[in-house]
């Protein structure tokens, strides 16, 4: 087991940021913490890194207890913060050199790291960080994280501040880490990232871990709850019943259209059933379920969910 978090709880005065969160991450697995802003993802990650001290619970990284042997535990991890920043007075090389010394990484690792195609410093390597663009600083942060070749990579909202180009590059980079057999754990509030990169997803809402899914299962779940909006001229006809009979999980009238939840393979069948049932379909559209819908689903699904408003 690469990372084991048990019963992590973090309270700030009377606010519970992380509430009894437990999960295990396998070696080589890419694990995502998914949740809206303020859901406790970042705090959980910081607990894993030893930056935030949990009120209760424990973390074991590659067999090392974070509290008792914090140095050894942290030796196993590399971290990329949400917003990377370095002293503007230092050059990229000096930054890397600093972290190399700090982690006792041999000097040639610097050359190895930056020679990979992911880090193209364009000759800026010997210029101070103050002259770097945001994307370059982000890349430097990734290079720092890659330097020690640690088995676990922790990233906090890695794509949040990236432009689309960089985001694509970054996804490639994460995939390459996976290829090297690294354990990757990252937080995100963006479903596409998680869908593309993660093996497993932990969904956090209001500090609680509300769901832990393999990505395939999540995908299944998502599509099963995908919605279809159908505009019908004669809305009074009993089309909702028809849709349900044809396999829709739900069908509700909203104004002049019917909103139907159904598995994709049943959609055509449902449309036919509406036509057969006398409905005159003028227009229809499908929409993917938004993250909010999933959260809502889990919040309403969990018994105490209502006690933790947004």
């Amino acid at each position: 087991m690469s990372i084991t978090a048990s019963n992590l709880t973090k309270k700030f005065k009377d606010f519970v940021a992380v509430n009894d969160v437990s999960f295990k991450v396998e070696r080589g697995e890419t694990f995502a913490l998914l949740g809206p802003n303020g859901s406790g993802k970042t705090t959980t990650l910081k607990c894993l890194l030893g930056l935030t001290l949990p009120t209760a619970g424990s973390v074991v990284v590659e067999g090392f207890d974070l509290q008792r042997s914090s140095r050894a535990a942290r030796q196993q991890m590399s971290f990329v913060p949400q917003r990377v920043s370095f002293s503007e007075q230092l050059t990229g090389y000096e930054v890397l050199n600093f972290f190399a010394r700090l982690r006792r990484v041999p000097r040639q690792r610097i050359d190895e790291t930056i020679s990979t195609p992911n880090f193209d410093f364009n000759g800026f390597f010997n210029k101070p960080v103050g002259e770097y663009s945001g994307g370059m600083i982000q890349r430097l942060g990734l290079a720092v994280a890659c330097l020690p070749d640690a088995p676990v990579m922790v990233l906090d909202e890695p794509t949040a501040s990236l432009d689309p180009g960089s985001a694509i590059q970054f996804r490639e980079f994460l995939k390459s880490l996976k290829g090297k057999g690294k354990t990757v754990i990252f937080s995100s509030h963006m479903l596409p990232d998680v869908e593309q990169l993660a093996d497993r997803v932990a969904i956090m809402v209001d500090g609680r871990l509300v769901a832990l899914r393999h990505i395939a299962a999540l995908r299944e779940e998502l599509s099963s709850t995908a919605r279809m909006r159908v505009s019908v001229a004669n809305i009074d006809s009993p089309i909702a019943e028809a849709a349900i009979t044809a396999g829709a999980t739900s069908a509700k009238l909203e104004g002049s259209s019917l909103v139907i939840s159904a598995r994709p393979e049943d959609r055509l069948e449902i449309l036919r059933a509406i036509e057969v049932g006398g409905g005159k379909v003028q227009h229809f559209s499908t929409e993917e379920l938004s993250l909010e819908d999933i959260y809502l689903k889990y919040v309403t699904a969990s018994p105490e969910g209502a006690t933790y408003p947004g």
Binding site: K46, S70, R74, F79, P81, V84, L102, R103
Partner: peptide
């Protein structure tokens, strides 16, 4: 020092 720079430093294997 700035939070993010601090985070990165404090996440390293140093006390």
């Amino acid at each position: 020092s700035e939070t993010s720079a601090g985070e990165l430093l404090f996440a390293q294997p140093v006390t």
